[in-house]
């Protein structure tokens, strides 16, 4: 039964993806500006009419809207996402490279978020309505209410300008972890704040359950009671929030990637929209959508794993 459900879930992805690709294609098509003119304009501002026309024909931009879209769809269906108007590079490879960079940042950001959110959420719940809890909640409030760009600049001012610990921005060939720390910290703390509040309230709820008292009555230490009996149950409702955060992180934060000059997928999408690079926009939007849907799908799987009642639903 469960398998059937998942097959159905996968099949649902197809119309969703077609809809998303159509929307992004239409939006960029009706946006002002002509890619051929943008590409063929020389830095001095003049452009050659014949070259523009040649560019249009070469890239099929002279065709009507729906033909352009269906051509793209036809190729995309067999895995050909075309080439960038700007760089002439394969869209798929470019998107994949950008995604790898975003992935690195996201993994670090998620690790930071979880390392902050779980212990502070748990402590906040266990010491609820004490000064410790107040401090945690104040921290969480700061985390959600500080805009990313502002927090990013504050951290740059402190860690780069004042104490010179970390580079202010840059990419460091994507391998130097020092360049990743600040952007990942900005992304991670924002996500941590939301998760922490969720974990706190969920943990408070679970700690009041009778089975926690039963576990204590068995002579288990408080540490085991909290970790084995409370935390797993408390994390179940938090999985959704964590999954959403992963989705957002993986889709790249435009603001953070721009501030820190990180060549991730957020930066790529913005650049290609600004230059009307249809192929690149289509490719990256579709990629991002697939990632988001896959994460949601994965969250459902984790949910099933974490909650035995769903796992055994139809089988028992």
């Amino acid at each position: 039964m469960l398998n059937e459900y998942f097959i159905r879930r996968v099949l649902y992805l197809i119309p969703v993806l077609i809809f998303i690709s159509f929307m992004s294609f239409s939006l960029i098509y009706i946006a002002p500006g002509d890619p051929a003119e943008i590409m063929m304009t020389s830095p001095s501002g003049g452009y050659d009419e014949a070259a523009v026309e040649a560019f249009r024909i070469a890239h099929g931009l002279d065709q009507p809207f729906y033909i352009q879209y269906f051509n793209w769809l036809k190729n995309a269906a067999v895995g050909d996402f075309g080439y960038s108007y700007m760089s002439e590079q394969s869209v798929f490879e470019t998107v994949l490279n950008a995604f790898k960079n975003t992935l690195k940042l996201s993994v670090l950001a998620l690790a930071i978020a979880l390392v902050i959110a779980i212990p502070f959420g748990v402590v906040s719940a266990l010491k609820h309505n004490t000064i410790v809890d107040d401090a945690c909640r104040f921290g969480a409030l700061l985390g959600v209410s500080m805009p990313n760009f502002w927090q990013a600049y504050l951290m740059i001012i402190f860690f780069s300008v004042i104490v010179h610990w970390l580079p202010a921005s840059g990419f460091g060939h994507g391998t130097d972890i020092r360049y990743m720390i600040l952007p990942a910290a900005v992304l991670g703390t924002g996500a941590a704040a939301v998760m922490m509040r969720m974990i706190r309230s969920s943990m408070l709820d679970v700690m009041g359950k009778e089975y926690i008292q039963t576990a204590r009555g068995k002579g288990l230490s408080e540490k085991i009671v909290i970790i084995r009996h409370a935390l797993k149950n408390a994390l179940v409702p938090v999985i959704t929030v964590i999954g959403l955060s992963i989705g957002f992180l993986l889709n790249g934060s435009v603001v953070v990637e721009t501030i820190f000059g990180w060549s991730g997928i957020g930066n790529l999408v913005v650049d290609s929209i600004l230059s009307h690079d249809y192929m690149m926009v289509q490719g990256s939007v579709l990629f991002v959508a697939v990632i988001f849907l896959l994460i949601n799908f994965f969250v459902d799987l984790v949910y099933v794993w974490a909650n035995p009642e769903i796992r055994y639903d139809k089988t028992s």
């Binding site: 009778e210 089975y211 009555g217 009996h229 797993k232 149950n233």
Partner: peptide, 18 residues
């Protein structure tokens, strides 16, 4: 749990569902 153990009233609430 060793010398003195307790048995709660409602088994559905007293057993950990997970």
């Amino acid at each position: 749990g060793k010398t003195v153990a307790s048995i709660a009233q409602n088994p559905y609430l007293a057993m950990n569902p997970g």
